[in-house]
């Protein structure tokens, strides 16, 4: 009974996602002003051939600063969690 119910739920959920996927369109956004600006001016303004790097590090530099801070905080959290796990290593971990 439980197994049949699971299979039924999987089929219903799969149909749900499949019907949504059939209705999607890709590669034709309505507003392209910003994309066109980056593609036309990115290479001259940042002197970089890689437009993705230009956006990530130059136009959206604040976002990358936040990402770096998130990574830093995550490492601090892991270091705090594992602080006293190993015996004899406690002094160095602090």
């Amino acid at each position: 009974m439980r197994k049949e119910l699971s299979i039924l739920i999987i089929i219903i959920f799969g149909l749900f996602l499949g019907l949504i996927a059939l209705d999607l369109t890709f590669g034709d956004p309505d507003n392209t002003a910003m994309d066109d600006y980056f593609i036309q001016n990115g290479q001259e303004q940042a002197a970089t051939n890689n437009i993705v790097t230009t956006i990530v590090f130059d136009y959206r530099g604040f976002d990358t600063l936040g990402e770096s801070t998130v990574l830093f905080t995550a490492v601090i959290g892991v270091a705090l969690m594992y602080r006293k796990l190993v015996k004899g290593d406690a002094d160095e971990n602090e």
């Binding site: 990574l71 490492v75 892991v78 594992y82």
Partner: peptide, 28 residues
């Protein structure tokens, strides 16, 4: 690239040190 390579290097050494220390702690 201007400052972009410098920022790539900065983020690179940060991620290198950060992930290495996470691995070091988790495999301790």
């Amino acid at each position: 690239g201007g400052v972009l390579p410098l920022m790539n290097i900065a983020v690179g050494i940060e991620v290198w040190g950060g992930l290495a220390i996470v691995i070091l702690y988790m495999l301790s």
